[in-house]
Design a protein around this nucleic acid. Sequence first.
DNA 1: CATACAATCTAAAGCGTTCTAGAATTACCT
DNA 2: AGGTAATTCTAGAACGCTTTAGATTGTATG
Lengths: 328, 328
Amino acid sequence: MKVTMADVARAAGVSSALVSLAFRDAYGVSKPTRERILATAESMGYQPNRMASRLASKVDDTLGVFLLDLHNEVFADMFDGMRDSAHQSGRELVLTVGSISGDLDRPALDSLVRARVDVAIAAGLLLSDAELQAFRGRLRLVSVARVVPGFDAVASDNVLGATMAVEHLLELGHRRIVHLASPPTDGYLGRREGYTASMARAGLTPHLVTCGYSRQEASDLAGPLLDAPDRPTAIFTHNDQTALGVLDAVHARGLRVPEDITVVGYDNTSASKLPGVDLTTVDLHPVDLGRRAAEIAVLRSNNPALEPMVEVLSPSLLVRASSAPPLP
Amino acid sequence: MKVTMADVARAAGVSSALVSLAFRDAYGVSKPTRERILATAESMGYQPNRMASRLASKVDDTLGVFLLDLHNEVFADMFDGMRDSAHQSGRELVLTVGSISGDLDRPALDSLVRARVDVAIAAGLLLSDAELQAFRGRLRLVSVARVVPGFDAVASDNVLGATMAVEHLLELGHRRIVHLASPPTDGYLGRREGYTASMARAGLTPHLVTCGYSRQEASDLAGPLLDAPDRPTAIFTHNDQTALGVLDAVHARGLRVPEDITVVGYDNTSASKLPGVDLTTVDLHPVDLGRRAAEIAVLRSNNPALEPMVEVLSPSLLVRASSAPPLP
DNA sequence: CATACAATCTAAAGCGTTCTAGAATTACCT
DNA sequence: AGGTAATTCTAGAACGCTTTAGATTGTATG
């Protein structure tokens, strides 16, 4: 049933060491033998056992990947970037997936430790900075879209992104701008801060509502805001999913966007580009983030002793139809 | 740096065999020693090396997962189901991701072979039936949402789903119904057949346009249809992504849904539920499919000799605002 | 033709677990 | 006590590869 390297060696009439060398086209195998070996392997349907080879070899070339949530397309984009880059440097990826409830972060990272990945790339970690310190020395981590002390990171300038969004709203003439902010988790405070600071600079009082990552929760929280007598003229959310939730609530009340209320999201997911949605949003260039993270992972792999590297990319604001001046 | 089982054994003053037993709380370790071992392991930050344990152990408990495309939420839903079920039976999942271009199917399956997964669950395979036969004997496969001869499968009744969609359109009074069909890949012909048969039963000529999996392509193909003099009154697409592409094209021409044209999708992704989109669609219950596939994978794992099992679940039609009677 | 040197191949020792067999200890009965 | 049975533990052989050191062959050189 399962064919091993020794089987191939026997069939090709060589030692199994030579099969090993032939497979990694290492120096020291004559061209004819290499071809014979590869041919018999092919005909026997042989694929090297990854467990055995990684166990035996000193050097490790696998990158672990943690993605918070497959339902949020931004992680799919990041993964595209990682895969693209990993592919170019010939690395295999081992993928683990978390959950927006946050209770899978630790098991997922542990599984990467057990898998003995060379370096792990994590996008969307919800653990606190302090909790993550427990992985120092056990797992080399490149954090995506978040800076974690002591680890490498490729972040997006969230303060800038939020600032651009809020200033766009201020320019349109909005004053009552509410921010549906992400839970105050370490590393994800930038959007919140950008909002607060921009409001303060404009002499306005920030109005923050903390909201999780699901569309449903955002819808539930937006309801009361919309029903209040001094309804905000604009709602800025911490990601697109929650912006869609706000749209749900707006729609359920028979209100219209942008006439009755302006909605601005964050992430530029493909749903935001739908006709009928057309959401003004901030693009954090997730593919680039992912690609750069994988590059840094390889760098880290080759230079384990370097100081933690932190790189910050700038997002861009995409103005679409969901934002307009408030009605007088 | 990296702590091994022997290290833990030495620190706890026992043999490494006993550490192994303690970790899998197998029979034969006294409670006090077990606790001592676990405690020292914990304090040393020890996590068993997965490579080594899988290499050494006869029984294998990992399930491989192949998902075609992380950008299509239906695969995220299926994964949720698989994870839920795998978690309950204490199995680890190894995830690989393909691509809608189809050229990653083979490498991804090969990587599952190399990973020596016990059973692989594949959702969205694009390889032909014939090409997949090459994996027989090398990889036990449970196909999701597609029946592949010789392998286990949990499928959705696509003929039924398409039939429900088309009959809904016929009841509304539509006659010129175009189907944006998926490429005629083995295993994905059901929706096409359901459409064709229903049209024929109604005495109408089917109008099929083959369209890939991307929103962009659907938009490009829908354009000419919309510009034609005898514009269809309804377009039924093979999935939601492509339905959104059709909406893009409709919108770009200043047409309205459902007044000017009815659009029906397939998959019930979360974008289809957006206000302003509100797409009539078919729900194939992806979470259930995923869950059931994982259950069958475990069944297969325990009974390798059984004949291939095929299970078919029924989809349901969700009528929303994107479908309405054609204007007279 | 011997010598040196490169090219090609192989034997065998790991890698960090699990598993099998059996040794050492403890508990239980009569 | 003495013997049997259960419990608790350990040594050492796999698992399927990689890697190192060395054996063998071939080729060029003086």
